[in-house]
Nucleic acid binder design. Structure first.
Length: 592
RNA sequence: CGGGGCGUGGCUCAGCUUGGCUAGAGCGCUGCGUUCGGGACGCAGAGGUCGGAGGUUCAAAUCCUCUCGCCCCGACCA
């Protein structure tokens, strides 16, 4: 493709509304255009990237025996009522929903468990038809509370979603394992560095789940990793050991201490310099929302630890959980926020304790009275130990659960998530089959998602520099950029055309910057910005049949330097072949 | 939804506090010429309902009201 023929333009400055590099760089390079919050036009170059990602996704799914299909984005709300998710999704506001001309409630699919389950229940009657895995690549709609970061969290985005159907729990696990391997292969082939982590299954529900995180400092998710043991989990889910508290001090009677203005552990440390954080107990108040009621919950936590709201939410089985607002705090404690404690709380409050407070004695805690704390408090003596569970957030440096290593916290971008759903949807929607003994049983399901458009953004978050994007070769919009310094100069015209022809004949996708009257500086800056990994410069040595080898990605293309044109062509062909070697043998190189 | 901020040529912004000339700059764009290996230079141009509506005023980008949109911080997720 000749760049001079493309709709192409670059901007010198970052757009004002782009917060992350991937968004800013793509917008500057014309890959992306925002139409409204979280809604984007994918330009020609970005679309090539997305199609390449899709091609890899398809190949790996097909190879694993999955069947591609396509379901409607437009769906009757009735189906969602049947699974029981309609209320929650509408209350959350995540579901785009409206009425058609007849007044029927409709929605735009944020995910397709309902539709696929409805489809499968009409087909499957016998265990002989199982297992089966279906998938589609399609636009999804979610009215995100806060769309942001460009392609990272859009309201309309491209997703690959797959669903497995099995006759037994073991079968479901086997399908899940198979999909896990498919996912590993996909992200490996995309040229991304990633980590598979244990995850919370959230609103989708089910028993087990893992997320695939592209390693990137700018990621929205924090991940707990243990190098020694290979443990990796989303911090929402992660467990660790915690250092035990110091031994109890000499027993003294509980008493009040004036603590004016001391609302945090930092403040209290200044007032009580000899008291370690491990002998402070925080009381954090939450408001938990259930389908039929609300409940104020107070959770005790050691002063040097933090609480994990996801663990708490799961334990309570609540729909939502949020920090209590000031009014709620005042009503529950009778004090200004910052002085909540377990003693003398309002009777309606549910009191729980994180396991970090176990063994803590003679501690400091809030007095439920403004500017007052209790000191020398003992569990068992001054108050009953509330029910104890693990509500803690893992912290950097914690020993791993088995004690054989230490936890490190890193960041990542979630590009894939796989779930064992069990029979949640099949039971709700009566997707049943007859087993060998003619007994009706619900189908065991799994679901598996990849954010295709998010993969593109994550690739840039992981691979860029000051000058621009650096695409991994397998998902780059083009394999190689041929930069012709002076379009119209005969020797350069001839050599560039010859190189492009040679590469294309070998199945390499080539972008040829043949723009006339564009200064060298601009060509180089643009080349850096769009980040095509391999580059050949046709310039001053063209008469001698030589070019400059100038890869964008030094790690991939090696050192720059002068080369005979034929040699450069050969090098590109080899690198491209190597990058595509993940393909099944016998298939031609993907041409799109 | 709660809290904070912003809407002025294609892009990045100034002007608004204290209303007053023909609404500006840089980049980009068009034409001509000189340049030509890291965002060149000169000359001549095009391009703006100042987000929208209403109001105050002799006069509104500027003040007031309403409204739409966008961004950031929090709960959600591919």
């Amino acid at each position: 493709m000749r760049l001079s023929q493309m709709l192409f333009r670059t901007l010198r400055e970052d757009p004002a509304d782009a917060e992350v590099r991937s968004h800013a760089l793509m917008a500057r390079a014309g890959f992306l255009h925002k139409l409204a919050a979280g809604i984007y036009v994918y330009g020609p170059m970005l679309w090539r990237v997305l199609r390449r990602i899709e091609a890899i996704v398809r190949e790996e799914h097909d190879r694993a025996g999955c069947q591609e299909m396509l379901m409607p984005a437009l769906q009757p709300a009735e189906l969602w009522r049947e699974s029981g998710r309609y209320e929650r999704y509408v209350t959350d506001g995540i579901l785009f929903h409206f009425q058609d001309r007849k007044g029927t409630e409709m929605c735009l699919g944020p995910t397709h468990e309902e539709v696929v389950t409805d489809f499968v229940r009409q087909f499957v009657q016998s265990h002989k038809q199982l297992p089966v895995i279906l998938y589609q690549i399609q636009t999804k709609f979610r009215d995100e509370i806060r769309p942001r970061f460009g392609l990272m969290r859009g309201r309309e985005f491209i997703m690959k979603d797959a669903y497995s159907f099995d006759a037994s729990e073991e079968g479901m696990r086997a399908s899940y394992e198979r999909m896990r391997e498919v996912y590993r292969a996909i992200f490996r082939r995309c040229g991304l560095r990633f980590t598979a982590v244990e995850a919370d299954s959230g609103a989708i529900g089910g028993s087990g789940s893992e997320e695939f995180m592209v390693d990137a400092d700018t990621g929205e998710d924090a991940i707990a990793v243990c190098r020694e043991t290979g443990y990796a989990a989303n911090v929402e889910k992660a467990v660790s050991r915690i250092e035990p508290p110091p031994p109890p001090p000499e027993e003294r009677p509980m008493h009040k201490e004036p603590t004016p203005g001391a609302r945090s552990c930092e403040d209290l440390e200044r007032l009580f310099p000899d008291l370690p954080r491990q002998r402070m107990v925080k009381t954090v108040l939450y408001r938990a929302v259930f389908p039929d009621r609300e409940q104020v919950v107070a959770v005790l936590c050691r002063g040097d630890r933090e609480l994990n709201e996801v663990k708490l939410l799961n334990h309570l089985g609540a729909l939502h959980l949020e920090l209590a607002d000031e009014k709620t705090v005042r009503a529950a404690t009778g004090a200004e926020p910052g002085f909540a404690g377990p003693i003398g709380l309002d009777g309606e409050v549910l009191l729980l304790a994180d396991r970090s407070v176990e063994g803590v004695q003679g501690f400091l805690c809030g007095g439920n009275e403004t500017d007052t704390h209790y000191l020398d408090v003992w569990f068992g003596r001054d108050l009953e130990m509330p029910p104890v569970h693990d509500f803690g957030l893992v912290q950097e440096g914690d020993p791993s659960e088995d004690g054989r290593g230490r936890i490190t916290i890193t960041r990542g971008i979630e590009v894939g998530h796989i779930f064992q759903l069990g029979t949640k949807y099949s039971e709700a929607m009566q997707a049943i089959f007859a087993d060998e003994n003619q007994k009706n049983r619900p189908i065991w399901m799994g679901c598996y998602g990849i954010g295709v458009s998010r993969v593109a953004a994550a690739a840039i978050e992981q691979n860029h520099d000051e000058a621009g994007m650096i695409w991994p070769l397998p998902i780059a919009p083009w394999d190689v950029l041929v930069v012709q310094m002076k379009a119209g100069q005969e020797a350069q015209d001839r050599l560039a055309a010859q190189i492009v022809e040679g590469l294309e004949a070998a199945g390499v996708e080539v972008l040829w910057d043949d723009r006339p009257k564009v200064s060298p500086g601009i060509k180089f800056k643009d080349a850096d910005l769009i980040g095509i990994p391999l580059r050949i410069v046709v310039g001053r040595e063209a008469e001698a049949g030589r070019v400059e080898w100038k890869p964008r990605d030094g790690a991939l293309g090696g050192a720059p330097g002068s080369l005979a044109a034929g040699e450069a062509v050969q090098r590109v062909i080899e690198l491209v072949r190597a990058a595509r070697s993940g393909q099944p043998a016998g298939e031609p190189a993907a041409a799109g």
